[in-house]
Design a protein around this nucleic acid. Sequence first.
DNA 1: CACCACACTGCGGGTTTCCACAATATTCGT
DNA 2: ACGAATATTGTGGAAACCCGCAGTGTGGTG
Lengths: 199, 199
Amino acid sequence: MSSHAYLVDDDEAIRDSLGWLLESRGVACFSYSSAEDFLAAWNPSLAGCILLDIRMDGMSGPELFDALSERGNRLPVIFLTGHGDVPMAVSALKKGAFDFVEKPCNDNELVNRVIEALQLDANQRVAASGADSVNTRISRLTTRERQVMELILAGRLNKVIADELQISMRTVEVHRASLFEKMGVRTAVELAQLLAGKR
Amino acid sequence: MSSHAYLVDDDEAIRDSLGWLLESRGVACFSYSSAEDFLAAWNPSLAGCILLDIRMDGMSGPELFDALSERGNRLPVIFLTGHGDVPMAVSALKKGAFDFVEKPCNDNELVNRVIEALQLDANQRVAASGADSVNTRISRLTTRERQVMELILAGRLNKVIADELQISMRTVEVHRASLFEKMGVRTAVELAQLLAGKR
DNA sequence: CACCACACTGCGGGTTTCCACAATATTCGT
DNA sequence: ACGAATATTGTGGAAACCCGCAGTGTGGTG
């Protein structure tokens, strides 16, 4: 689960030299000799970044990138190419690649890009963890509590909520209190801020 | 104030042919023969997109791009180049350029990119207008009303707000009511949602 | 069947919010 | 100096909110 650079290149010499370079700078590294291999190994819980050669036997770098995107990949991807053209670089970046570098390139520069990518992933991860814990809390609400929450967020008064759900006001109050408790919030305002952006 | 393509290129032949191409496809177009000219003409209320040649006498395309960014430019920028290299394209896109196309290129393709950029700008504009109207409303609040609003959003009860601001509860109620009125909301929850993400 | 989570309800009472009515003080611009 | 906007406060009552206590009913599980 720790942060690694995932290196995908069908040229063993590159894998070795790049792998060694990264390790020597303190970046743990896994190598794959084909896009297919990495795709099989990939799972949503990987952390770090991906270094992808453009031209490879079998599935190409961009194809792998697309496949990973479809599977919900969040890891920053750095494309490596010895024969990159501008349209390819533009297309890769517009699709959300983190970077696109030409080989050969300055070693120092490349490692820096990798470290930036690692940092980005780490940041995204902490940002997402907040959202996750909120979603977890929501998932622990009962159906009724969720319904009541929706209506609270819609600005309805307890009396109105009771009416709309065809239950007594007291019951609404009970649900309200218990969902506040479960969501770890003390007022409706806090609840609204906690869910800002969602729903 | 209407939407235009702003074309900046020091080659008159290009300006003419590109200008004509865009006009023929219904895209209104202004041309500038130097980065300096456009920079002088630029103002924050322009709407549309910018087509920027990379290599020009005097200030270059990327330099103009940076200058515009510093001035808070929001218009999508499409770079045009006859001799673009990959690092330049990568750098431009990572800085937020909308696109980077090589000349000569398929006319149809280019016009499509321009139209996409125009569309993006239009979308950004409607999204921003909402935020603007909210900011306008906030700006119409008095100092006290803003202070009370902050504390309401912090989830404080009126009595606590009164205490923190060293004023009576009644006064807080008055400010509360008038700021709700000015912000066009009826409850604290609505207020919190209206300002979700801000402050 | 006993147990438990969930949904539901009433009562009583304290707290908070909302508002109309009524007033005073300060600042600022004409 | 006068009026407008802003800030301030009080009284008092209606409405809404919060909560503990106590109890009913249903569905699912061991």
